[in-house]
Nucleic acid binder design. Structure first.
Lengths: 187, 187
DNA sequence: CCTTTCTTTTGACATTTGTCAAAAAAGGAA
DNA sequence: TTCCTTTTTTGACAAATGTCAAAAGAAAGG
């Protein structure tokens, strides 16, 4: 759990009592490549911390898989809409590599919030940071060309290019695989 | 402040002590049409609740104004990135109509969080709901055509069409004004 | 090493959307 | 009303990106 502790400390320092309580409720989850953490139609009851491996979030649109999100080491992962609203997920979360995660249920997390104000603050702050990241991606999507978005990806998330296939990267960028292939070969 | 009280009650019920404390720190702000609540380059120190009127968030990209957000009655408004990170805003927030808002500073809000756990919970929950909305818009932007996004706008936010000019609506949808005009005339 | 499968590249062409310029329409002020 | 300004529409054309199909390349298994 060192990775988790190190990760959350960057957002907000946690008293040891709260950390201990958190540790007690965390469950380790290991899933093999290609298996699913969340499937559409099911309520996602857990928030995860990805310790090792790599995941993607995608949904089905007109028979196509649309990837809109990747998770790597030290990322928090969940089907956010489902986890928060307690409604069935519209998305799937799949392991792209053998992965190891720490899991906490919605219920347990909310109980922790009642008991440990610092944990609620931590999550508030993390949510805010994730909001800002989504906002950045949103703006890029709305106002930049395919090539600019690709260049921004090289700049900001080069690890994606190393660990993710071209087709899925293209989907993530909101362009077709062929277009990305052409951009990459200096088209 | 009735509108604010009614609005936040939908998210989380607030004890009267916390509500009183909040009221004491709120300042009323009234700004005329076309004036600015936030200008790029300045740190946005306040979170606002829009009681009356209408605002837009936009930034300048290659000499063009790119509108990516509108605020109406009962919306919370701020330059989120700047408010959270305490760095200069990259965006402008401008009144499209004469507007009335309630304002709270970053500092005052964080002091309230220390004193009233329920207020921090409220904000956490509101943040989560706003995250979900942004996620929806993001997905629409990434994977739907201009026409589909317009139809989704009619469905979800018809008030935008009534109160916002065509050019700004087009920008919000991530398309040119001409394209939106053509879509609207059944192109 | 060979075969099979999956991923990436390439070509030809269609579609969507953007850009520029001008005309038309709508709205405000005197 | 009449003039002036802003917004919206229209046309012609260009650029960006998607789609389909096939070929080339890379990875995996036996």
């Amino acid at each position: 759990m060192n990775a988790l502790y190190h990760c959350i400390s960057k957002y907000h320092s946690i008293p040891s009592g709260a950390w201990d309580a958190l540790c007690k409720t965390l469950t380790k989850v290991e899933i093999p490549r290609n298996s699913f953490l969340v499937k559409e139609g099911m309520v996602c009851n857990n928030l995860y911390f990805l310790e090792k491996g790599c995941l993607r979030g995608y949904y089905n649109l007109d028979g196509k898989e649309v990837t809109y999100w990747f998770g790597f080491e030290d990322n928090f992962v969940t089907s956010f809409y489902s986890f928060i609203s307690r409604k069935p997920s519209v998305e799937n979360i799949q392991a792209l590599e053998d992965s190891a995660l720490w899991s906490i249920s919605f219920e347990a997390l909310n109980q922790l919030f009642d008991a440990h104000k610092d944990l609620e603050r931590l999550v508030r702050i993390i949510n805010e940071q994730y909001y800002i990241r989504l906002e950045e991606r949103f703006m890029a999507m709305q106002f930049k060309t395919a090539r600019e978005r690709y260049e921004q990806l090289i700049e900001n998330s080069p690890h994606i290019l190393h660990r993710i296939s071209l087709g899925q990267t293209a989907s993530y960028l909101g362009i077709s695989q062929e277009t990305l292939s052409r951009i990459r070969s200096q088209g």
